[in-house]
Design a protein around this nucleic acid. Structure first.
Lengths: 147, 147
DNA sequence: CTAGGTGCAAATTCTTTGCAGAATA
DNA sequence: TATTCTGCAAAGAATTTGCACCTAG
């Protein structure tokens, strides 16, 4: 887990204002092992400060995403947008369709492919999104017990 | 473009009812070069039959997706769900961030990787989502002109 | 002090649902 | 005819916005 201090330094360097809500959002996401929805962030912050509003969370997410402190994630299953700390490490997600847990994997199998594609089609690739769906070990075990 | 007849045969074989709306939705998606939102489908059908309702479109999409005649697609940019004819050909999308056009590419660079991952982690992979984002030739040209 | 941030309530947008009537197999 | 589908209107969920007040720089 990246040190919160590093993230706060990055927050300062963006020039946007350094409010307690934003700090606590970054804190919460930094300690989360999963991407979190606006609602989850809201509920978490509300436990310490019941005056915060959900619209503040949405507005904070917008600006944190625009400043690359946070990434926006949309999974196939599940309707709402999630957010994760942007650690500037290229990675992808493995999503369990049994328990909806999200695992992060480093390394990327398609950088080479991007170059191939650019050469072949002339399309300029600036990014990509890859997610794998399936069943984690625990859910596979449960599945077997059911049969 | 797959023959509409083939698709209608598949529709029949599902056992779900063969209504004119469903046929026209499949027709529309079959001739589309891009995934379409429920709203786009609705607007298109409404030109010929103004009595159709948006909820019918949503309900039709549910059942067509469940019966594998249609795929559901969620892009990172853009908020609403889109739908495309399921041609049972494994493919991925290249999305232009300039004009929002969606190009389809056949072939998949990560099947091998899936196996590796399964061996390494024990996670059972049943599917994946891969999208590439960037700029198409036309938009790259425009970009240059602006500078 | 001033630009930018915030809470609240209301508005929007996308999607789902209940129900009574209509169409398909 | 029985089951499934449909239109309409209303409800719901997620997200955005207007406005008056507040706070960090």
């Amino acid at each position: 887990m990246e040190d919160l201090q590093d993230i706060l330094v990055r927050l300062k360097s963006t020039g946007i204002k350094n409010t307690k809500h934003r700090i606590r959002i970054l804190e919460f996401l930094n300690q989360s092992h999963q991407p979190r929805s606006a609602d989850e962030i809201y509920e978490s912050l509300r436990q310490e400060d019941s005056s915060i509003s959900l619209s503040t969370v949405y507005r904070a997410m917008d600006i944190l995403v625009a400043n690359e402190l946070v990434n926006k994630v949309n999974f196939e299953n599940g309707t709402k947008t999630s957010f994760e700390i942007n650690r500037h490490i290229h990675h992808h997600f493995v999503v369990c369709l049994g328990c909806n847990k999200v695992f992060s994997i480093e390394g990327c199998p398609i950088h080479e492919y991007e170059h191939e594609l650019e050469k072949k089609t002339g399309f300029k690739v600036v990014g990509h999104k890859l997610e794998l769906y399936g069943y984690c070990k625990a859910c596979q075990r449960q599945q077997k017990h059911k049969n």
